[in-house]
């Protein structure tokens, strides 16, 4: 028969062992949950990028403006989407706008074009309104990789992005009326 002190020591020893088991169990579960959480958060970030990538395509298919096109003596209203607007980047006014005089004159009236597609406030406002993001940047490259156009509504976008949160970069290629391809790269910050 143990003394009261002996019984207390036994209970204390059991409690210590139980506590060690609990701590080990919690650590194992914690480590595994942590691994899963990191994986899931990567997927969540990836999901967001994926959906924003969809938004770049939506932007390219969105109507940028309505213009009046003269055709066979008749005037008809036509939607110009952003992909068509961007693909005008190779055209220069007034020498190389063959077949697009009607469109160029309209662009000039709207302040979107000076001698070629220009990064002016009207152009920026048009994209910002459609896209709805506070900050974006657009870069166009020719098929040789040479940058042919650049426009953004914020300086040092990447630096700002690192300090302020969500940042993503997307790209796609579109054809132009001249048959030269345009590689479009877009960055956004939220």
């Amino acid at each position: 028969m143990k003394t009261k002190k002996g019984q207390t020591e036994d209970i204390f020893a059991d409690l210590i062992i139980a506590l060690i088991f609990i701590v080990i169990t919690v650590i194992i579960i914690g480590v595994k949950s942590g691994e899963h959480e990191i994986g899931t958060s990567k997927i969540l970030a990836s999901e967001k990028n994926t959906l924003k990538n969809m938004d770049l395509l939506t932007l390219l298919r969105s109507p940028a403006m309505q213009v009046n096109q003269e055709k066979e003596g008749l005037s008809e209203v036509r939607n110009i989407d952003f992909a068509e607007l961007f693909s005008m980047v190779y055209l220069n006014y007034p020498t190389e706008q063959i077949g697009f005089e009607w469109l160029f004159n309209d662009f000039i009236d709207r302040g979107l074009v000076s001698d070629s597609l220009s990064c002016e406030s009207n152009f920026k406002d048009l994209i910002t309104e459609t896209l709805g993001y506070t900050s974006w940047s657009l870069r166009f490259y020719s098929f040789t990789g040479k940058q042919i156009f650049e426009c953004d509504n914020l300086d040092n976008l990447r630096k700002y992005a690192i300090a302020n949160g969500y940042y993503a970069k997307f790209n796609t290629t579109i054809p132009s009326p001249q048959g030269k391809d345009i590689f479009i790269e877009m960055e956004i910050v939220e």
Binding site: S46, E47, M54, L57, E84, T172, I174, P175
Partner: peptide, 28 residues
């Protein structure tokens, strides 16, 4: 992980959409 398969599906769909956009403009 949760959502991983869906992200893969969306990315595939977007890749196809890029090609379709190119073809639409090309035809235009």
């Amino acid at each position: 992980y949760l959502g991983e398969a869906e992200v893969g599906l969306f990315n595939t769909y977007i890749a196809a959409e890029k090609e379709l956009l190119y073809i639409d403009l090309m035809a235009e």
